[in-house]
Nucleic acid binder design. Structure first.
Lengths: 229, 229
DNA sequence: CGATTACAGATTGTTGACAATCTACAAACT
DNA sequence: AGTTTGTAGATTGTCAACAATCTGTAATCG
């Protein structure tokens, strides 16, 4: 068998071996929640989802338990499961923890970052500046998410990445809820991003950490300020 | 109906309303894993657990999905679920994140701590010093866990507490695995604990954070050193 | 005699059915 | 008329059976 075909079928085998229906349902629901197709507070009826995805209720219920533990849904016994609603107070808590992790990311990364990684970050910065000049929030937002996600990944600490992503997901839920109320400000943080990358490049551990902590707290303040309006 | 009886039955109602079999199975398995009754790497057979707890396989499988997301078990499709094994590298990652959260806890708490909370911490310190003088690890260890857990709780940030506890649970799993290999050192950290409480009492935010960060990293080094032997 | 294949038993993945609970609407009562 | 009670429908919680996959053993082949 040709190598290409061999790797393709081995990928298919891998898929079947690792992905149960529960996993696929979980992933799809997570996608729909984060994409906003399922809004905060929306009820997830087992039967509806099961028939929609052409599976029985068992895998759906198992996916619910995983999503609950991941903080994306809330379960009321005998009532159903609902997309989690993140209150302002909840968001404050989450931002506080995220700022702590961001500081850690900055400190660790300044000691470990590789030239190729720095290049990728600078590449992202360019695209973000371009989107900022064009005042295109739709282009800027995903780049910003990616920028911060790469920072976390570059630490090489998978535990850190997992905890960081969970917080970002929960905040995404908050943003999703406030978005409906028309409150959203354009993030004018390209300057801060550049300073962070510069500190990382110079290996200034404490400074990079401090910059990232402050950046996270300011992004919290910006969202709150936007809500006041 | 008498108040006492009323509150007792309302508690029973509360229990039935909030706790499904899945929840109870999840809690029991978590207890057994953290207590070491189920050792890292041990296989959890659905049928065995189901018949042991007098429930069917459904709730057991749902509990598995929650425990998996909580990082306590690992699932291999068509093979079964196993108590998670935390490697030295994993533990290093976890300690790194925990140190970051501990620093955050110290910084936040120094700004918010209440007199009654300080009193409770000092009370715990006394008991720990007594256990240390008696060289009783069995008495010291749970007090140490409780001390740090209370520090997290006193921040009033439930998100922070949740993430902190998850890390502690995972480290508990690591400790459990190394324990079998006879490597464990007596924690001689009463001095550091006192300094932390003093910094909190004086409201020295940055110093409390730094002390807690270093305390976490040293406790990592202690465990590693014990493993070398 | 060692390696491979075929089979049987056991375990997990999935499904559909039954029991318990909740929700909504209508009838009865004050 | 408004409130309460009762009932029917729908939804969730639990269970048991079926299908698919894996593991270990024995028979077969080189």
């Amino acid at each position: 068998m040709a190598p290409a075909s061999a790797s393709a079928s081995s990928a298919a085998i891998e898929l079947l071996q690792s992905h149960s229906l529960t996993t696929l349902v979980q992933r799809e629901l997570e996608r729909r929640i984060l994409a906003g197709e399922l809004e905060p507070g929306a009820k997830l009826a087992e039967e509806d989802i099961a028939s929609d995805l052409n599976v029985s209720r068992g895998p759906v219920r198992e996916a619910f338990r995983a999503l609950e533990q991941a903080g994306l849904v809330r379960t009321e016994k005998n009532r159903g499961v609902f997309v989690r609603q993140v209150s302002v107070d909840d968001a404050d808590e989450i931002y506080e923890v995220r700022a702590g992790l961001d500081e850690l990311i900055g400190r660790l990364l300044a000691l470990r970052i590789q030239p190729a990684q720095l290049a990728e970050l600078r590449e992202l910065l360019k695209k973000m500046q371009k989107a900022a000049r064009a005042k295109s929030v739709d282009a800027y937002y995903p780049l910003n998410v990616r920028f911060h996600d790469r920072l976390a990944e570059f630490t090489g600490n998978r535990t850190l990445v997992a905890h960081y992503r969970r917080l970002v997901n929960e905040l995404h839920l908050y943003r999703r809820e406030t978005l409906a109320r028309g409150a959203d400000s354009f993030p004018i943080s390209t300057r801060e991003h550049s300073e962070i990358v510069d500190a990382l490049a110079r290996g200034e551990s404490d400074r990079a950490g401090k910059l990232m902590y402050e950046h996270a707290m300011e992004s919290r303040d910006r969202l709150h300020a936007a809500l006041e309006k």
